[in-house]
Amino acid sequence: MPRPTSLPAPPTDDDLVTRVTGGDPAALDVLFRRHRDVAYRVAYRLLGNESDALDAVQDGFVNAITHLARYGRKSSFKTWLLRVVTNASLDLGRVRRRLDSRFADGHEPYLGVADGRLPVPEHNLDRADLRRVLDRALAALPEPQRTTFVLHADGGLSYQEIADALGIALGTVMSRLYYARQRLKCLLAHHVTP
């Protein structure tokens, strides 16, 4: 009877990054599969649609790897990746908003909240509706608060990691999260169960 063998420890992000820079496609695949979900969630929350979020994820991975010199391994690869994905998402969002304003023909603004208030639900919202409400509420936040909140809630980054990713002080992270929560509570008052 064969003896059970212990599985080798999965490679660390640093190992994978080193191999990726050497042109190892298998390492890139592992790194991509490991972080694609969290990168997508952050991008989706910042952009509000799947297609743009996937574009931002692709841009983010490419930029994160091609600009590894700036990363300098001062933080985790995930923190670095989410920082780059966040920037890619914000850039993409600005481009989309510019296009929306140029071609506006009475449609709703891109992820925007025209009067700062969300529609009051008449019935229980399904998941897609709730997501739209949430997207709009997020869009109503100032960009710094929105970015900070998404990196925390969807990116799963700690306060310190957010501070590292955004290049801000820890206290700034905490205050932004506080004000973001207050604003979201207000915007989502009709949708949250007290």
């Binding site: 991509f32 694609r36 979900d37 997508y40 929350r45 692709q58 809630a153 929560r181």
Partner: peptide
């Protein structure tokens, strides 16, 4: 309470084919 809303409004995740396309693009 926001956390519950957040959890219920989980983003729609891409299919494996979409992920493959993104991975190939990268």
């Amino acid at each position: 309470p926001i956390r519950d809303v957040w959890a219920n409004a989980y983003p729609p995740m891409p299919s494996e084919a979409e992920w493959r396309a993104v991975g190939d693009g990268i």
